[in-house]
Design a protein around this nucleic acid. Structure first.
Length: 882
RNA sequence: GCCCGAGUGGCGGAAUGGUAGACGCAGGGGAUUCAAAAUCCCCCGCCGCAAGGCGUGCCGGUUCGAGUCCGGCCUCGGGUACCA
């Protein structure tokens, strides 16, 4: 008898699939089409175990669809532009293109080892001029449609390296390479008008029935539709040209709780005032020494600068509020100015306490009964300040009331709950926040103070990057014509090869000649745009390009119409917002320019988000105290080979930059691809994150060896005719077909694997005759084939199966074989399991009740009395309440 | 900070509101063997001699019955618009 040897069989069957071109997508009028796509990888150089998990899952889906009679498209490519290539160039002097190409070659070899059902004939990399040239053509179409424009935006500026930094490259406010304090700097940048689609991107979420709710919720919150009031505070003795401050608020019901105005350091008023006020200029400069990341802004200590200016409250012009410049207000959001309501907003509350501003309650919780009192921890507070607010005369106790809420602001939990408004609206004091907001807006509109508006949190998509390794933006800057689109016949605008990376930043902008071109319009000497596109642009349409990877235009209408949409999209949940939202926008923009049919504006019919594979992060520090990361394979017992101890950071998703990646090639070399595949599908539910541990690969391999042995023993066994065990085995087989099929269709791969373990054990112990066992073995092999395709092919051929198991029709469970004759019903007494009875599956309720009443445990519990209640759930459970 | 998730034995995890711990790993015991590998069988949540009690991150609620539903927390993970 032969033994399972993956190294013998895996190359053999991979060649057989290639020779038969079984994975080459072919349109077929007799079959439903099925487009399955996994998010394509960034070519970091090596496949890590997270990739194996992701792509094996997609492969199971694709192979199952082939077996169930679909014309399958399952392509693969490379998300090949991006920062790491430039970093590698700076570190090692390699050209980003060379580095990327060699990474792709390397990873493709590793992919090949896994035996994935990919159609490599459609492969492309986003750094191929054939790909990004089409992207440039679409950019010009978008530009013509008014979907692209330029405006100023802030970036992280490293003043030492003289370059723009990604948020990831800013650590504690310092540039990761130079260590210099990062500054904000304004640049003119290109934007996609995604905000034109805010409403549609929001409402269309409802049509995505096969997307996870969590992703839809995240996108909904990200788009952030809000209704609110836009109004102005009039400024008292402001500088010339500044007589009002526009504010947007979603809580106009709290206007009577306003106690200060905050404006962004970049607000036009702040910029005007800093010219005359050195202290404010210094404050603003300090504020600008912060990265652009929202997280950093929000977590930073809230600081303000009192401008000394005052505004009038629109409801009571005698009421004056101070104007602060505050570091937590972004110019990009809303109007760049807010009013603070410390009683009901935690951030404003913190700010008010810090600057001893009044805290004026607007509403109280119904349950609030506590007597008004001064906060015991703030004896230093000077309450006389509150009396300066004229209209609050005699209401200072209200301020103190808010302080009785004390440390935390009385933040309202929901807008649809009722509160008691201390001053009321139109005579009503008890109303929901929503009603109060309506009333406040109505009141303001009536009195000409402001107007209700709908706003979205979603901002336009800034696509400019000041970097070399990306898709060049195909426009030319001409002194006389201004910004001129490149002519389509001149595309692709290729990246120059002869660049050096001896200094950080955008190599395009200091290339000696690349920029110099004649203006496409007037022919005069002009300069190319040196910004390249955000890599999210590359990944926002690759799914469409896969339908016709060689077309002269971005897509081919017939091919796109046939293959789109992606029937099943699979990828990490970390892409829940940006990549997926951008792709949804991009498909709409492509449709607007005739590159996709209307039916493809939601490009992904079904989405499955995988959990991530996580691992601890190991690091040491260089001479400047900056972290140096180490691979898990270099670390033993918390020490490097040279004996140095590493710092350990808790598990996070595997990423090249943190080097917490595990190489799957060792497992493949030692045990084969099928072991690696089976292993990553076992145990963990696909949607959940898993902390990587290598223990168990050996046991996984033993199991595959067991399958091999059991099946080959059956093949070699003598045929002694039908046996009494036949029916039990076949019944179990049909249940397994059912469970495994369900498991695969619902992404319950771990459950499917568990079921196959159990069925293997059943088959191994079965007393059935040879014919039944052969049938069961063939089914087992077929059911395993999406997961362990090489092993399955080999055993299938040994079992005399027809052709390739990959192409064999998926088995169908016989419903009649799924029901058991008898069921065991647990008997609960007061909800606790005390006994059980086994009854015929079709036994009537009264008969079951009689049996239950006769049960010893029930008799004991009843002690002669009658049960209060007797619940029989047919086929499930019995509960006796005594 | 804000938004979205997750939390069950020593470990990975299973469980349409219905027997908590399927299946696997690790561990323990045994069979086979000259020995080993491989293989097979049995045990394996906690406390308790037992009867029994306790048990799905924590606190409370709904229900005949809650890992599952509701409210409030805690911890961890993802995203936070220039990592991809």
């Amino acid at each position: 008898m032969s033994r399972y040897n993956a190294a013998d069989i895996e190359p053999k069957w991979q060649k057989a699939w290639a020779d038969a071109e079984v994975f080459t997508a072919k349109a077929d009028p007799d079959k439903p089409k099925y487009y399955v796509l996994e998010m394509f990888p960034y070519p970091s150089g090596d496949l890590h175990i997270g990739h194996v998990r992701n792509y094996t899952m997609g492969d199971v889906v694709a192979r199952h669809r082939i077996a169930t009679g679909h014309a399958v498209l399952h392509p693969m490519g490379w998300d090949a532009f991006g920062l790491p290539a430039e970093n590698a160039s700076i570190e090692r002097g390699i050209h980003p293109g060379t580095w990327t190409r060699s990474n792709i070659a390397n990873m493709k070899e590793q992919f090949a080892l896994l035996g994935l059902s990919l159609d490599w004939s459609r492969e492309f990399a986003t750094c191929d001029p054939e790909y990004y040239g089409k992207q440039q053509a679409m950019f010009l179409d978008f530009l013509a449609k008014g979907l692209v424009y330029r405006k100023n935006a802030v970036v992280n500026w490293d003043p030492v390296d003289m370059t723009v930094l990604a948020n990831e490259q800013v650590e504690d406010g310092k540039g990761w390479r130079s260590g210099a304090t990062v500054e904000r700097r304004e640049l003119t940048q290109w934007f996609f008008k995604i905000s034109d689609y805010s409403e549609e991107l929001l409402t269309a979420l409802d049509s995505l029935d096969n997307w996870p709710d969590k992703v839809k919720t995240m996108q909904k919150n990200w788009i952030g539709k809000s209704r609110g009031l836009q109004f102005a505070f009039s400024l008292i003795d402001g500088p010339d040209g500044h007589d009002r401050i526009e504010v947007y608020t979603t809580r106009p019901d709290t206007m009577l709780g306003a106690s200060f105005i905050g404006i962004s350091p970049d607000h036009p008023l702040a910029r005007e005032l800093e010219k005359e006020n050195e202290d404010l200029a210094a404050f603003n400069a300090e504020c600008r020494k912060m990265g652009t990341a929202e997280e950093e802004m929000e977590k930073a200590e809230k600081k303000g600068f009192d401008t000394g200016l005052r505004v009038r409250h629109p409801f009571d012009t005698a009421w004056e509020l101070p104007v602060y410049v505050a570091n937590f207000i972004l110019m990009d959001y809303g109007t760049g100015a807010i009013f603070g309501c410390p009683a009901h907003d935690q951030r404003d509350h913190d700010f008010a306490r810090k600057y001893d501003l009044p805290i004026i309650p607007v509403f109280v919780d119904e349950d609030y009964t506590e007597a008004v009192k001064l906060p015991s921890d703030r004896p230093d507070l000077d309450w006389s300040g509150a009396e300066g607010f004229g209209h609050l005369d005699g209401e200072t106790e209200m301020t103190m009331l808010a302080y009785a809420f004390d440390v935390e602001a009385n933040v309202p939990p929901a807008k649809n709950e009722e509160y008691t408004y201390l001053r009321g609206f139109f005579g009503e004091t008890r109303l929901t926040a929503n009603a109060a907001i309506d009333a406040a807006i109505a009141f303001c509109e009536e009195h000409g103070v402001g107007h209700g508006v709908t706003k979205f949190r979603l901002r336009d998509w800034g696509l400019s990057r000041q970097r070399y390794w990306g898709c060049p933006i195909p426009v030319v800057h001409c002194a006389t014509c201004g910004v001129v689109p490149e002519k389509k016949e001149n595309l692709p605008i290729e990246l120059p090869e002869d660049v050096t990376f001896d200094r950080p930043g955008n190599a395009l902008s200091w290339h000696p000649t690349w920029r110099d071109v004649p203006c496409p319009k007037c022919g005069a000497p002009a300069q190319r745009e040196t910004d390249t596109m955000d890599t999210f642009v590359d990944s926002s349409w690759y799914y469409a390009r896969f339908t016709s990877p060689d077309a002269e235009t971005p897509t081919d209408a017939d091919e796109a119409a046939y293959w789109m949409n992606v029937d099943q999209y699979i990828g990490g949940v970390e892409h829940a917002i940006l990549h997926l939202l951008y792709s949804r926008f991009y498909a709409r923009a492509m449709h607007a320019c005739g590159h996709l049919p209307a039916s493809a504006i939601e490009p992904f019919d079904a989405l499955f988000t995988q959990g991530m594979v996580t691992h601890e992060i190991y690091l040491t520090r260089d001479a400047n105290g900056r972290p140096v990361y180490h691979l898990p394979s270099e670390v033993n017992d918390g020490k490097l080979a040279d004996g140095r101890e590493v710092e350990i950071i808790p598990s996070a998703k595997m990423s090249k930059s943190k080097r917490n990646v595990v190489d799957p090639v060792d497992i493949i070399n030692q045990y084969g691809a099928d072991t690696a595949r089976w292993f990553v599908l076992s145990d963990s539910p696909p949607e959940r994150d898993v902390e990587w541990t290598a223990s168990g690969a050996d046991a996984t391999h033993r199991h595959l060896g067991r399958v091999w042995r059991i099946v080959t023993e059956i093949i070699e066994s003598p045929d002694e005719g039908a046996q009494p065990g036949d029916k039990d085995l076949l019944r179990e087989m049909h249940k397994t077909i059912h469970d495994v099929s369900m498991g695969i269709e619902s992404f319950g791969f771990n459950s499917a694997v568990a079921r196959l373990y159990a069925f293997t054990a059943t088959l191994g112990k079965s007393q059935a005759g040879r014919a039944a066992k052969i049938e069961a073995a063939r089914t087992l092999v077929q059911l395993m084939s999406p997961m362990t395709p090489h092993l399955a092919e080999d055993l299938w051929s040994q079992l005399g199966g027809d052709g390739l198991v990959t192409l064999a029709a998926w088995p169908v469970a016989d419903d009649a074989m799924l029901v058991d004759d008898e069921v065991t019903l647990p008997i609960q007494i007061n909800g606790k399991r005390r006994s059980e009875i086994t009854v015929p599956a079709d036994m009537a309720k009264p008969d079951i009740e009689a049996l239950v009443m006769a049960d010893k445990a029930v008799q004991r519990a009843l002690d002669g009395g009658a049960p209060k209640k007797l619940i029989v759930v047919p086929g499930r459970i019995v509960n006796v309440v005594v």
